[in-house]
């Protein structure tokens, strides 16, 4: 338990720093902005208390907000996927797996499941984020393109990171 606390604290800090100093500096164009820090919410163990999950999601979003000066933007998106995660987990997971596996990783659930599970949550996160960022329904077509392209990019980096770190264990 204590080990886990240390591990997830480290992941939290690492992801926030990497988001702030690496992914925010990529600057491809206005359509492709990866927000890889959501990985933290995706990989928290399923045994975690739902309220604690919500709290952690909110704190993660708020930390990113504080660093980038966009109060409320990321925390709104993160809170939503923190709330929806148990439902998404229930929808995408078969009964047997549901009982057995505690940590959502590619290694335990397989790639196809992980893509569906994280893809769904990432799209929701990005949908809220980019809609709130532009704060208008004018030109919503471009916002939708932005959501889809960014989600694909985030998903790509999330899976890459997952592979990179699951090998080491």
């Amino acid at each position: 338990m204590k080990n886990n606390l240390l591990k997830y604290t480290f992941i939290f800090i690492a992801l926030v720093l990497v988001q702030q100093f690496v992914f925010n500096n990529i600057e491809l164009n206005t359509y492709m902005n990866p927000y890889v820090y959501v990985l933290f919410i995706l990989i928290l163990p399923f045994t975690l208390n739902k309220s604690l999950l919500l709290l952690l999601s909110f704190v993660l979003g708020a930390t990113i907000d504080l660093l980038s000066g966009t109060l409320g933007l990321h925390s709104a998106a993160c809170t939503l996927i923190g709330y929806l995660r148990p439902f998404v987990h229930a929808i995408f997971t078969s009964r047997e797996d549901f009982e057995q596996e505690l940590v959502p990783t590619i290694a335990t659930y397989g790639l196809a499941w992980f893509v569906r599970y994280s893809g769904f949550l990432i799209v929701i996160h990005h949908w809220v984020l980019f809609t709130l960022e532009s704060f208008t329904f004018e030109n919503y077509g471009t916002t939708i393109i932005r959501i889809l392209l960014s989600s694909v990019l985030t998903l790509f980096f999330v899976i890459l990171t997952e592979y990179a770190f699951s090998k080491q264990k």
């Binding site: 739902k50 309220s51 909110f58 925390s75 709104a76 809170t79 709130l132």
Partner: peptide, 30 residues
Amino acid sequence: YQVIFLFLLFEVLSFSLLVNGSYFQRAKVV
């Protein structure tokens, strides 16, 4: 119903920060 209450609390908090967020507020936070 603590989960749904927490969810609503955090969302309301986020949205109120977002809607009241102004240049001034950003300047202060930053």
